[in-house]
Computed example of a mutant assay.
Amino acid sequence: MSPPPRLSIVLPTLNEAAIIEATLTRLQAMKAAGVELLVVDGGSRDETPARARPLATRVIASAPGRARQMNAGAAEARGRTLLFLHADTDLPPGAEAAIAAALAEGHAWGRFDVRLAGHHPLLPVIAFAMNRRSRWTGIATGDQGLFMTRAAFDAAGGFPVQPLMEDIEMSRRLKRVSRPACLHARVTTSGRRWERGGAWRTILLMWRLRWRYWRGASPDDLARAYRHVR
C-alpha cells in the first residue's frame, strides 16, 4: 500500500453540478502532488457525482447534511491532515505549505482568511468583518477552509451532527485542543448567499441566528428559521 498522503481535502456537495468541475480542476495540481481529493455527495439530484468522479480521488455517497458528509469523508480519508472545503471555495496559492507551516508551529487546527467573490459592494466589508471576528473569538466558519490534524479531529469527536452551526460548534471543540492558526492567506468563496438573499437581510439573519445559538437555541429550531427565511 502506498504511504498516506500528507493532506486530504474533503468537499461536501449537494446539487453542485454547475461548479464542481471548475472547483476540482483548480485542485488538480495539488492532486498530482499527492493530495487526496474526496468529494462526499449527500444525494444530489443533478450530475454532481458524475462530473466529480473523473477529477476526484474518490466520490463517496453519504446521507445528506454537511456535518454527516464531512464526517463520512474524514472516515475514508488517509491523510494525516484534513482540510474541509466548500464546493464554491477556492484555495490560495501555496495552501498546502501554509497549512503544514501552521501545524509545525504547534497549532492543531486553523483556517484561512476569506475573500467573497461577487458584485455587491458590501462583500469586502462582510469578509473583513468575518476575518476580524474570527481572530478575536477563535471561532471559524466553514467558508474559511477549516483544517486540522487527524488527532485534533478525533479529539473533537468529529463534526456535531446538527443541521446548522456545525462549524461553530466544531471550532468550540477544537479550541479545547489548541488555539487556531488564523492564516492571512485568503480562500475565495462565492458571495452568492448574500447576493441572492440580500446583503443586509442575510447579515441580520446570520447575526440573529448566531445570537440565538449562543443563547442555547436548538440547532433544529435555527435550521427551520433559516430555511423559512431563505
Score class of each variant (00 low, 15 high):
M1H: 07
S2Y: 10
S2K: 12
P4V: 07
R6N: 05
T13H: 03
T13K: 06
T13A: 02
N15C: 08
A18R: 11
E21H: 07
E21C: 07
E21N: 01
T25F: 03
R26W: 00
A29W: 06
M30V: 02
K31P: 06
A33W: 09
G34C: 13
V35E: 04
V35M: 09
V39H: 04
G43P: 03
D46P: 11
D46I: 02
E47Q: 10
E47K: 09
T48D: 09
P49F: 14
A50S: 08
R53S: 10
T57W: 00
T57M: 04
R58V: 08
A61W: 00
A63D: 14
R66Y: 11
R66F: 11
R68K: 07
R68G: 02
Q69R: 04
N71E: 09
A72H: 04
A75H: 14
E76G: 04
G79E: 03
G79R: 01
R80M: 04
R80E: 12
T81L: 10
L82H: 02
L85Y: 04
D88Y: 01
D88W: 00
D90A: 12
L91K: 03
P92Y: 00
P93K: 07
G94F: 05
A95F: 06
A98F: 00
A98T: 08
A100N: 03
A102T: 06
L103S: 03
E105K: 08
G106T: 09
H107M: 05
F112D: 05
R115E: 15
L116C: 13
A117T: 02
G118K: 14
H120N: 11
H120L: 15
P121N: 03
F128P: 01
F128R: 15
A129V: 10
A129N: 12
A129F: 11
M130F: 12
N131H: 11
R132D: 09
G138T: 02
D143V: 04
Q144N: 00
T149S: 12
T149P: 07
A152I: 06
D154I: 06
G157W: 08
F159I: 07
P160K: 06
V161T: 13
P163M: 08
E169S: 07
E169N: 00
M170H: 14
S171Q: 10
S171P: 11
R176I: 07
V177R: 00
S178Y: 13
R179F: 12
R179N: 13
C182Q: 15
C182Y: 11
L183R: 02
L183Y: 09
H184K: 14
V187S: 11
T188M: 06
T188Q: 04
T189N: 14
T189L: 09
R196F: 09
G197E: 13
G197W: 14
G197K: 14
A199F: 12
R201V: 15
R201P: 13
I203C: 15
L204N: 15
M206H: 05
M206Y: 06
L209T: 08
Y213T: 09
Y213I: 05
G216I: 07
A217V: 01
A217M: 05
A217Q: 06
A217R: 13
D221H: 09
L222P: 08
H228W: 15
